[in-house]
Every structure is written in C-alpha cells, then in structure tokens.
C-alpha cells in the first residue's frame, strides 16, 4: 500500500500537520485550500463565491501575495506561508491590522461578504508597493467584486493609510 504523504501547512503563524489521502480525516488530493481553511480549520472569514478565481472573495495571502484559494490545491501549499483575514490581527494583543482599522473607520463595506478578500488584496498590494497611487489601488483591487458598491469607501480607506504613512 502506498504511504500517505505528509503535508505541513503554515497558516496564520500556526503549523498544521496533515496527511494526504482518502481516509477519514485525511486531505484528499483534490481538496482546495479554501475547503481546508473553512471546513477543516474553521477559518470561515475566507469566502466562497464564484469558485473559479474570478471574484476575489476567497483571496488569501500566500508568501505575502494574494491568491485565489478556491483554485489552489491544498496539497500544493506545503512549505508556503498562508495568511487569512483571521491572521491579520496581532496574535498577542489582538490589535487589528491598520487596513482593517481603516475599513472600519471608513465603513468600507456593507454586507461584508467580499471584504475579507478585498482586505487581503490590499495587504498584498501594500506588501509590494507601500505607496500606491489611486490608479494602482484600483488596478490591484480589480479582481475583487462587490455587489454592494463599497468600492468608493474602500478606496478612501486604503488612501487614508497610504497618506497617513501608517504602512501596513
């Protein structure tokens, strides 16, 4: 019989040991990262919407860059640093990330469903480009859909932290 493959995931600063396989409790090869986060680890801040990478609701950070967890296989995440919306706050103090604070400040959401993905996309942008222009912000968020039209407040929120010099 084939040995189960080991899989070590680093998510929000924690290490999780899994095995890949078809038995109860194992991660099947076809499981997406989104499924692992929501259904195994209870990290339900990351949302499932379109399921094909188009809407941005499932965005998580992989080694600091936003990726669509719904079209990412968990089996391929070994050794990667994964951060979800739950992992942005300071684990010790519980203090929110400045982006999250800014979103609260500017009411940059309505129903809030797409907001975790948007915040992850902003984090990804600011990791690479701490002082984006408005166009760069819009471009970076062009893969995040919002049906409540929170975009205006989102851009204001992002601009507030860029201008305020409180880099993420």
């Amino acid at each position: 019989m084939e040995m189960s493959k080991e899989l070590t995931l680093h998510i929000n600063g924690q290490t999780y040991e899994f095995t890949i396989g078809r038995k109860l409790g194992q991660i099947p090869e076809s499981e997406t990262l989104l499924e692992t986060l929501r259904e195994r680890l209870g990290l339900t801040g990351t949302k499932l919407s379109c399921g094909e990478g188009a809407c941005g609701c499932c965005a998580v950070l992989m080694d600091g860059k936003a990726v669509a967890s719904c079209v990412t296989l968990t089996a391929e995440c070994g050794g990667k640093e994964i951060t979800t919306i739950e992992g942005l706050a300071d684990p010790v103090t519980g203090e929110l990330d400045p982006i999250q604070e800014a979103f609260l400040e500017h009411n940059a959401f309505q129903c809030g469903f797409c907001t975790p993905g948007i915040i992850i996309a902003v984090k990804s942008l600011l990791n690479a480009n701490p002082h984006p222009t408005e166009d760069e912000i819009k471009e970076a968020l062009s893969g995040n859909f919002c049906r409540c039209i929170s975009h205006y407040q989102v851009i204001e929120a992002v601009q507030s932290i860029v201008k305020g010099g409180e880099q993420a």
Partner: peptide
C-alpha cells in the same frame, strides 16, 4: 490577463 489575484498564481 484576468486579475492581479489570478496573475499571482
């Protein structure tokens, strides 16, 4: 191509 999120992968 697509979106920045997709282009990261």
């Amino acid at each position: 191509v697509a979106t920045p999120i997709i282009r990261n992968s």
